[in-house]
Simulated assay, not measured.
Amino acid sequence: MLYIGNHTSSSKGYAAMGRQMVKNGGNTFAFFTRNPRGGNAKAIDPADVAKFLELAREHEFGKIVAHAPYTLNACAVKENLREFAKETFADDLKRMEFTPGNYYNFHPGSHVGQGIEVGIQKIAEVLNAVLTKEQTTTVLLETMSGKGSEVGSRFEELRAIMDLVEKKDKLGVCLDTCHVWDGGYDIVNDLDGVLNEFDRIIGLEHLKAIHLNDSMNGLGSHKDRHAKIGEGQIGLDALVRVIRHPALEGRPFILETPNDDEGWTREIALLRAKYAE
């Protein structure tokens, strides 16, 4: 089965997100746990969650993918920013237990001149501080494009973080097609080779979700500018090969394309039709 949906607004609650996704033709979705540019989190209504869980069962939803706020930087230079990251992480993981067994995705962070090795160490320290044995949520490190001082544009960097984390069974990876392309991995001409490299370095069993995006820029540009499906440098054919690749079967595919619900509905319908060919 193809689990596909888009990144949607969480402002109206879980049930509304689920209903909108069904309307869009999706059976999974991503959402920000709180204001993506700040620290505010809306209170969770258990009755609303119950309605969503019932809808998700009825429509055979795949796992949903929560997204940490962009302001969470686990390897920031300033201690107060790293403390904010820890507090936000810990609070979000508690909130995720209202919808148990799903994914919480985050950008590993930017080392801001400290160096990749220091960044990796600090990210692992935060993860070791917040991950618990009891949590049912899997935390996903997102592949990044490598702009600025981002950590995570190479598979080896994600592996290094994972190696330093004690509760490895609580970790996974979200592969973003725009980011890996911009990071220098040629998923257009050598998708098998990229996935084989991922498997060799990290292990495909750790690849839990995919952000399905086209890119405005060329291979290895390190820009991170998403494009609509089929309107960028990756192209429709290559992205269809991604959703149809047997090694990625059953993962949630999340559209983060510059669109509205009408546009996402068209993209989901297009990709479903191509998947079925």
Rank of each mutant, 00 (worst) to 15 (best):
M1T: 12
L2D: 01
N6I: 00
H7Y: 02
S11E: 10
G13Q: 07
Y14F: 15
Y14K: 09
A15R: 13
A16H: 07
Q20S: 11
Q20M: 13
G26T: 00
T28N: 03
A30M: 13
F32M: 08
P36V: 01
R37V: 03
G39H: 08
A41S: 14
K42P: 01
P46S: 08
A47V: 09
K51S: 15
F52S: 10
F52C: 14
E54D: 15
A56M: 11
E58V: 09
E60L: 13
G62M: 09
I64P: 10
H67Y: 04
P69D: 07
Y70M: 08
Y70C: 09
L72P: 08
A76R: 06
V77P: 01
E79C: 04
E83W: 00
A85H: 05
A90K: 15
D91W: 09
D92A: 13
T99L: 15
T99C: 14
P100C: 09
G101N: 05
G101F: 01
G101H: 00
Y104S: 11
Y104K: 06
F106Q: 01
H107V: 06
P108K: 03
G109Y: 02
S110L: 03
S110E: 13
H111K: 00
V112N: 14
G113S: 12
Q114T: 12
I116N: 13
A124L: 03
E125S: 00
E125M: 00
V126E: 02
L127H: 10
N128M: 04
N128W: 05
K133P: 14
K133D: 15
T136Q: 14
T137I: 04
T138C: 09
E142P: 03
M144C: 13
G146N: 07
K147N: 04
G148C: 04
E150L: 02
E150N: 12
V151Q: 02
R154S: 15
F155H: 01
E156F: 07
E156N: 09
E156T: 13
R159A: 15
A160N: 12
D163M: 01
E166I: 09
K170F: 00
D176L: 01
T177C: 01
V180G: 08
W181S: 14
D182Y: 10
G184F: 03
Y185D: 04
V188Y: 01
L191T: 03
D192W: 05
G193E: 12
G193M: 14
G193Q: 12
N196R: 15
R200G: 01
I201Q: 02
I202R: 08
I202Y: 01
I202L: 05
E205W: 06
H206A: 12
K208G: 03
H211A: 06
N213C: 03
N217T: 12
G218K: 05
L219S: 04
G220R: 05
G220W: 06
H222S: 11
H226W: 12
K228S: 14
G230T: 01
G230A: 05
E231H: 13
E231K: 15
I234K: 04
V240G: 08
V242I: 08
R244E: 11
E249Q: 14
R251F: 08
T257M: 08
D261N: 13
W264S: 10
I268T: 00
I268P: 00
R272W: 07
K274T: 05
Y275F: 15
